[in-house]
Design a protein around this nucleic acid. Structure first.
Lengths: 195, 195
DNA sequence: GTCTATACCAGGATAGAC
DNA sequence: GTCTATCCTGGTATAGAC
């Protein structure tokens, strides 16, 4: 496999990643990808079987990157509360939406097994990570025993995903920022006074 | 305007409401609406200028209903914490998604001014309601003064909207339920001990 | 008012030349 | 490997009969 091969292929993937993020899956047409990438149809159908396979390759990279950056953020604190707050505080392109969460609402994604699985998998991995952190916090007495680790994990995930929804609806990142700030404050309050 | 007029019109609207909820706007074709409603193209284009106008009429009814039911839930408690928790506890068809929030992710909705405005407006009204409730709670000493009412309002909204996203990604309502339960627990904890 | 027939454009995939 | 031409399908809207 020559080097030139990989170059066009990677270019198509990079272009597709951008479009998937901005428009979702259903609204990203092969034509739009090819126009933006500056190549003809032949290139795409040479490297991939079609739209779905290209999108899957592109989205696989996107999920890898996102998980890596989340992991980096979680490493940024020492206590459980600090680490969850560090995740909430990650800088995000709010109005562009979450590159992963956006896919969950796309009806065509629901019908495309490999894509659906990737979305599911990202959230499952983040959830597992957050559950472990919350459990440590509860065990260490940093967080009240009244909280359940699995519930808190999904609450944190949901605040971020829901914040994106609210921001997009308003055309303004402010609702996202407020939602995150509110969750951060709640964590600080319950962390301050473990019973 | 004769009665028969209104009947077909309302039938089209009701059918469209169902499809918008299940598939979103972009994925709801006039053909699908007409097939399900059992009428021809002529009926639709007689009563409405096209897909967008029909969808706007249908979605207007959807937002009215949703706001009414939210309002009913908020009336269900006495304290601020109880009222926000009552909203979180409203029974929802989780896997079907939020009929309003789902629209926020639809690229075609972003381009359809009247629809976008309706989505924005629903969240704005709910936010205003929640802010008022949270302010009362803080003023009454039920909620700690460290919390900001506007932030808490969006956090509650975001938990619900994000819960839908997580549930759809997983194909399972459990993440929604956990997210809501976690938020409910946090509210109880901060409400128990106002500083 | 409602129907069917038609028109037009775009999405997605294939064929075959270079 | 990549390009262009072509094909088929379905979304959306219009025309005109009943």
């Amino acid at each position: 496999m020559p080097k030139a091969d990989s170059t066009t292929r990677e270019h198509l993937i990079a272009t597709t990643r951008e479009l998937l993020w901005d428009r979702g899956y259903a609204a990203t047409s092969p034509r739009a990808i090819l126009d933006r990438a500056g190549v003809g149809q032949g290139s795409m159908y040479h490297h991939f079987s079609g739209k779905q396979e290209l999108a899957t390759a592109a989205f696989t990279e996107t999920t890898r990157d996102l998980l890596a950056r989340s992991e980096a953020a979680l490493a940024g604190g020492t206590t459980a509360v600090e680490r969850l707050q560090a995740y909430l505080a990650v800088p995000r392109e709010v109005l562009r939406g979450c590159p992963v969460g956006r896919m969950a609402g796309d009806p065509e994604v629901m019908a495309a097994e490999p894509l659906l699985h990737l979305v599911d998998d990202v959230f499952a991995q983040m959830r597992a990570r957050f559950v472990a952190i919350a459990e440590e916090g509860i065990a260490a007495g940093e967080l009240p025993r009244e909280l359940r680790a699995d519930e808190l994990a999904d609450t944190v995930l949901a605040v971020v995903q829901g914040g994106y929804v609210l921001a997009r609806a308003a055309g303004d990142p402010a609702p996202f920022d407020r939602a995150v700030a509110g969750a951060t404050a709640l964590l600080t309050l319950v962390g301050k006074d473990p019973s």
